[in-house]
Simulated assay, not measured.
Amino acid sequence: MKSWRNAVVKGDASLERAIEALDKAALRIVLVVDEEGRLVGTLTDGDVRRALLKHRLLSVPVSQVMNRSPKTAEQDWGESRILSMLEEHDLLQLPIIDKERKVVGLTSLHDVLNKHRHDNPVFLMAGGFGTRLRPLTNNCPKPMLKIGDKPILEQILLSFVNAGFHRFYISTHYMPEVIRDYFGTGEKWGVSIQYIHEDEPLGTGGALGLLPHEEIDLPLFMMNGDLLTSLNIHSFLEFHENHGSVATMCVREYEHQVPYGVITSEGTQIKSMIEKPVHKFFVNAGIYLLNPELVKGVGHGVRVDMPTLLEQEIEEGRPVNMFPVHEYWLDIGRMDDFHRAQSEAFECNNG
């Protein structure tokens, strides 16, 4: 990247001088520092335009028009955390500071995305029958049903591809040729795709035993092939790595309202009455990160469901964590879910 030092100005520099630095550095940001080199603010093209619209003079100190509370990254942050910050706050650049707030670098979304590639394998589960979506699934696997102009499975694949992942495995069982013919080797998306075929359904976790275990050398993403979500994948990976998990499960908050007044009592005496109380639970969102040792512990051809597999890990005293998903999430399990997804895709494309 071009030298960020060309984009540094002092707080008492004029707005005109800052604009010159903005143009010369061509980084779309100016870093405003004090005499000790500590970051006190930033100036972007948008800040300049807002100042000009307010008829601010070019001679005013840049400190009067800069952003005084810029988002920053610390120099010991990993790329996953930096990318998560950039995406979460919709930023193009992020100043890097040390513990004394002195500027030590500048990173950008362009740089991170272009140089960063995640080698973590991604396992997409696409073998289900989709019986609750018949007759739509009579001649089409559920993950291949189109939402908008793309199959559900392609939308999932693209979310990982756009986040820098390139190693994919897809499990198949029902009408595998439809999936294989569409995705091929993954060349169309610039990725590698291998297929894991279940001759007989092995449960939600059994297909892990069919993976080429010698190739699973990093935490593996595992995701149901009938989900639509805007989950921040980098935040999920960062959370898993930082918490020392053997497995991390994405969870969603689920609310259930009791349709009656609930009574608590002691003997025959009523102690309280709560009208139609709402209970909140965390439920499995169908997305996991699994360490290699867990994946390799599933034997070839063993039938096991993911809850059972994770319960075994918990009983053995190994850490299994949960990651709450607050982003958009939809499990397309029933016909009304499918119609809702179509409606939301239409609104997104025409809103």
Rank of each mutant, 00 (worst) to 15 (best):
D12K: 12
L15H: 06
L15E: 02
R17E: 14
I19Y: 11
A25W: 02
I29W: 01
I29Y: 02
L31P: 01
L31I: 03
V32R: 00
E35D: 15
G41Q: 01
L43K: 07
L43F: 14
G46I: 06
D47C: 05
D47G: 10
V48L: 15
K54R: 15
H55S: 14
R56I: 05
V60E: 12
V65F: 05
N67E: 09
N67W: 03
R68E: 07
S69Q: 13
T72R: 03
A73K: 01
E74P: 02
D76N: 15
D76T: 09
D76P: 06
W77I: 02
G78W: 01
E79H: 07
S80V: 11
L83H: 07
E87M: 14
E88Q: 13
H89W: 15
L91R: 07
Q93W: 10
P95G: 00
D98E: 03
D98Q: 04
K99P: 01
R101C: 07
K102C: 07
V104E: 01
V104D: 00
S108E: 05
V112D: 02
K115E: 12
K115T: 12
H118N: 07
N120S: 14
P121R: 00
T137V: 09
T137S: 07
N139W: 11
C140T: 14
K146S: 13
G148C: 09
E154M: 10
Q155G: 12
L157P: 02
S159G: 14
F160N: 04
N162P: 05
Y169C: 04
T172H: 07
M175Y: 08
G186L: 08
G190F: 04
S192M: 08
I193E: 00
I196D: 01
I196C: 05
I196P: 04
H197Q: 07
D199L: 11
P201T: 00
A207P: 11
L208G: 02
G209C: 03
L210P: 07
E214I: 05
L218Y: 13
P219G: 01
L220H: 03
M222D: 00
G225S: 06
L228K: 02
S230I: 00
S235P: 08
E238L: 08
E241C: 08
H243C: 06
H243K: 09
M249H: 05
R252S: 10
R252Y: 06
H256D: 06
V258N: 12
V262D: 11
I263D: 00
I263N: 00
Q269L: 13
M273D: 00
I274G: 05
E275Q: 10
P277S: 06
V278S: 12
F282T: 08
G286C: 02
I287F: 06
P292R: 01
K296N: 09
G297W: 03
V298D: 03
H300R: 15
H300D: 10
G301L: 07
P307Q: 00
T308L: 14
L310K: 04
Q312A: 14
E315Y: 08
M322K: 11
F323R: 04
H326N: 11
H326T: 13
Y328P: 06
Y328E: 09
D331Q: 11
M335Q: 11
D336P: 12
H339L: 15
Q342N: 13
S343G: 08
E344L: 15
A345I: 09
G351A: 08
